[in-house]
Simulated scan of single mutants.
Amino acid sequence: MSTKTHFDILLIVCLIFNLTGCNEKTAHPQKKAGNPSEKTIDEKIAAVDKEKYDAGMLKLANGDTTGLWPVKPQPYPLKGAILPFKRIVAYYGNLYSKNMGILGEYPPKELWEKLHREIEAWEKADPATPVQPAIHYIAVVAQQGPMKDGTYRMRMPENQIDSVLAIANMGNAIVFLDIQVGLSTVEKEVPLLEKYLKMPHVHLAIDPEFSMKDGTPPGKKIGTYDAEDINYCSDFLVNLVRENNLPPKIFVIHRFTKHMITNYKQINLHPEVQLVINMDGWGAPPLKLNTYKQYIWREPVQFTGFKLFYKNDLRQFPHRMLTPAELMRLQPHPIYIQYQ
């Protein structure tokens, strides 16, 4: 995704508002003293259909013989896990901008008509895997100019997040709240969404592209997250799941360059969180497929995703998007599909 494209997007958002985020996998994370829900964690794990889970993970590997996929070792998820039992198909964007994704381009009824057509295409490409619709909303938007606190990020108002929840409810969809931290941090931004993340159907996403650790304004270069940042977010979700007796949270991290995620082998996995590395780059099919191989297949974490762009993917020859049938040839199969 080019920095110029995002520069234009961020400018539009600013104008609208008028304003000058060793595979050392941890199957049993450290427990917090005095949490009564932790007495049932082993029971929840035991309740998961482990045989079905293993079969699903093997299916996702799609015949990979390198030993990279499926990822081992990894913990079995708690009861109520969505992955790998369903494929998530999401519409992405922000309600304030038509340029940030399809979510802001159409009224809800038309939006759902389009999303249902994509769901049908995926059901046809992989009839054995049910589709879970999703709305993926950018709840914290990186900015080209500094805010009063110097963070270069704008938090969306709660009434807009509530509108997204209402749109999702129209189609029995789950919701992802996406964070672009700018010069802020996940430690500052994620807890502010706690009341929403406590909802069973609301999940988290973070975008390294706009995590500017060296103070560079967003849009000038590609940002980065380290395993430490990712583990902070996972630990936050783990505690929410335990304290509120929730089903596992899905946690999406976008990626299309090597430096966007550092020290991937140190990313911890938990029964309470299902982690997806989402191939976020745009361009012609060969470029996108190579990006998936280089940065998603080659550095395995747990689950994989793939973003498709209705506009940007058409810019380069042969001026078309990849199809579900083509993506089903990938090793591993992406289990999270995002349309922008």
Rank of each mutant, 00 (worst) to 15 (best):
P271D: 10
L197K: 02
I222R: 02
N244Q: 09
I261V: 14
E243Y: 08
Y232W: 07
D226K: 04
H259E: 15
L192S: 10
P208Y: 13
T185M: 10
H270L: 05
H203M: 09
Y232S: 10
R242H: 11
H259T: 14
I174M: 11
D226M: 02
A168H: 09
T185D: 11
I261D: 01
K220I: 15
K221Q: 12
P218A: 12
V190P: 03
H270D: 09
N244W: 05
A173Y: 00
E194G: 14
F256G: 08
K249P: 02
P218I: 02
D214T: 11
A173K: 00
D229T: 14
L240H: 01
P200E: 11
Y264P: 00
L197F: 13
M212D: 00
D178P: 01
L192F: 06
P200M: 07
N245W: 00
C233D: 10
Y196P: 06
P208T: 13
N239I: 05
V238L: 12
P271F: 12
L237A: 09
R242D: 13
K249E: 08
G219P: 01
I253L: 04
V252A: 06
F236T: 03
L204N: 05
Q266A: 11
M260K: 06
E194R: 14
N268R: 14
S211E: 08
K195G: 05
F256A: 09
N245C: 06
S234W: 02
H203K: 03
D229S: 14
I206R: 00
C233P: 04
K213I: 14
N239D: 14
N244I: 05
G182L: 10
P217V: 03
H259S: 15
N263S: 15
F256N: 06
P247S: 13
I261E: 00
N169W: 01
P217Y: 05
S184G: 13
L237E: 06
M260Q: 14
T257D: 07
D226N: 11
F251G: 13
L177F: 07
S211H: 12
N239W: 03
K213H: 07
Y196I: 12
I250V: 15
L204R: 02
M260S: 11
V186M: 15
E228F: 06
H270G: 00
K188W: 07
P191D: 12
E228D: 12
G171S: 04
G182D: 06
F236D: 06
G219Y: 03
L192N: 08
V190S: 08
E272T: 06
L177R: 01
L237I: 01
K195T: 11
L269Q: 07
V238R: 10
L240N: 01
T216P: 05
Y225Q: 10
E243D: 15
P217K: 02
F176E: 11
V202F: 04
T185S: 15
N245S: 10
A173R: 01
V252K: 01
L237P: 00
M212W: 00
E187R: 10
D207Q: 13
M170T: 11
S234R: 15
A227P: 00
E187H: 10
V175E: 04
K213C: 08
G215H: 06
V190N: 03
N239C: 04
Y264F: 13
H203F: 07
I206M: 13
D178V: 04
K221V: 13
L193Q: 07
T185H: 03
F176Q: 08
E243Q: 14
L177V: 05
S184I: 03
G215T: 09
M199T: 04
